[in-house]
Nucleic acid binder design. Structure first.
Lengths: 204, 204
DNA sequence: GCATTTACTAAACACTGTTTACTATATTTA
DNA sequence: TAAATATAGTAAACAGTGTTTAGTAAATGC
């Protein structure tokens, strides 16, 4: 019965079509303005059809969130070639910040919005973040082994590094850096500079 | 004409009534579930009446946001009595983190949500945050003068400290700390521990 | 060829923020 | 004091939202 396989394929294609449209609208107009009716109109189907392929709006944005993590992960792991673990840590951090600057809506969805978290609660393991965070743990382990950074608990250090870069970019993404009263470019420079200072303080 | 004064007073009382109801509902059910109709029902007026006292929903939450800043500011400035500026910095940081743990919805409104920022864009100066951030700058200046922390640019250091504690608590508030796979109490301990490590790295 | 399953949709439900047109009361003016 | 005006408040509507239900038309299985 090749029909079943074709049907399965068609089902997946329809899911992809919805995700593609939703991603396009999301990156163009943001989460709130990306309504089920907008997506439906864009793909030329009725709104109810979308519910045959996704449980609810959050499930659509859960898939987009997963795709975004795949992109970030790919960017971060490019630095695998950097031999010195401290240099690698620095490169990873800068790439993380750059990713947030260049993809603020993706960053928002991955690390700030509540939307995709409903799904994750039912999954008992957040693989997408586990993967990226695992890479940080791995890099920090190498830093400790080679005594490149001050000795401390691995997980506490990892939380410290992640929280720090997240703090920088999330204040930027959610427009709290406006207190600096600087043009956007200058703010970004301060953030990169602040990260450099953080790294210097971390050094053994 | 004492009538005009009474009218002014009544207008302010009505605004207060709306803000009180909105704050109560917000802290009980969150932003999304606090609708204009809910507030109207709670204060026993029609929804349209609220628009005679506030431009829109965001303006209501802007006032709540200002009140929340007043509370945080009061908490932080309690540490004015701590003579040693580094000790004061540590106390301020811990109180900031504690505030976020104890008032996650307020914290969200102040530092994460987009709602109050629409108003702030029209104000050209964000006094509430300016006040709190000013206290941090003041404390850090004292730290530098007494050579308690590593020499660096004042603003870059301030952004570093603020971003760091914000990163910690915003990942917690928006439920990203779930990757630690720990009970809530243990997560909070890790966050406080991470802050201690950060301070140690900052020390001169 | 007929029964059944599948794919899809129009319309409705229960909400949301916000505006408009209208009423009843309070205040001011003649 | 009586008429004119200003103020306070509201019912109903507008334009949206996510989601569900009931019903149709086409594809598939027998």
């Amino acid at each position: 019965m090749a029909i079943k396989e074709r049907k399965e394929r068609e089902k997946q294609e329809m899911r992809n079509l919805i995700i593609e449209s939703a991603t396009h609208l999301f990156l163009k107009q943001g989460y709130d303005k990306t309504s089920i009716r907008n997506i439906a109109e864009d793909i030329e189907y009725s709104p109810a059809t979308i519910y045959l392929y996704f449980k609810d709006k959050d499930e659509i944005f859960y898939v987009i969130h997963e795709n975004a993590f795949a992109i970030l992960d790919q960017e971060l792991r490019k630095h695998d070639v950097v031999a010195d673990p401290f240099e690698r840590l620095a490169a990873i951090g800068r790439t993380y910040i750059q990713f947030a600057f260049e993809n603020p809506d993706y960053y928002d969805l991955m690390f700030i919005m509540r939307a995709p978290m409903q799904q994750i609660k039912n999954e008992e393991k957040w693989e997408a973040l586990d993967c990226a965070f695992g890479y940080l743990l791995q890099t920090l382990t190498a830093c400790f082994e080679e005594k490149k950074i001050r000795q401390a608990d691995l997980h506490v250090t990892a939380i410290m590094v992640w929280s720090y870069v997240h703090g920088l970019v999330s204040l930027y993404v959610r427009e709290r850096m406006c207190i600096l009263m600087m043009p956007d470019d200058a703010v970004r420079e301060v953030l990169y500079g602040s990260f450099d200072l953080f790294l210097a303080n971390l050094k053994a």
